[in-house]
Simulated scan of single mutants.
Amino acid sequence: MNFIESIDQFLMQLVIVPIVVIGLGVLSAVTTKRIFVGPLVTLILNLLYEVWYAKYYYPDLEISFTSWNIYFPIISLVISGIFISARKTKPKESH
């Protein structure tokens, strides 16, 4: 049994994957200071995860994408917007 198989799928799909894909999307948006980078990175990472998951667990079936590919980028867009706007309105310290 490898590491991936030892993780509970409920925990993986409802906690770990959303935190990782949304977190990396927001992080990339904040580092590039472009709000639309976050949802794009989130979408790409989640699509890659879903393709891997389908091929790993159901190799004979056709790949189908879930509605999480809509929800996660929207959540990433909102969080990225909050972080970027908070960063822009932050007062600069003067010495």
Results as ranks from 00 to 15, higher is better:
Y53N: 14
P73F: 01
W52Q: 14
H95Q: 14
S28E: 02
I74K: 01
F10K: 10
I75S: 03
S94R: 04
V20C: 08
S28H: 00
G81Y: 11
L48N: 13
N69A: 07
Q13C: 05
P73K: 01
I44G: 10
Q9N: 07
K33S: 10
K33E: 14
G81W: 01
A29E: 02
L48F: 13
I44R: 05
A54T: 08
K33M: 07
S28C: 03
S85C: 00
K33I: 03
P91V: 06
I75C: 09
I16N: 10
V30L: 04
S67T: 11
L40I: 14
K92A: 09
W52K: 06
V37M: 06
H95Y: 15
L14V: 12
S64F: 12
R34I: 09
I82H: 00
Y49L: 03
V17M: 10
T31A: 01
Y56V: 13
I16S: 04
R87M: 02
S64R: 06
W68L: 09
L47D: 12
G23C: 05
T42K: 03
S6Y: 00
P39G: 09
I82M: 13
I79P: 07
F83A: 12
V17E: 05
P39R: 04
F72M: 01
E62T: 12
V15K: 02
A29V: 08
Q9A: 10
S76E: 03
Y53Q: 09
S6G: 07
K88N: 08
E93R: 10
S80D: 00
E62V: 05
F3W: 06
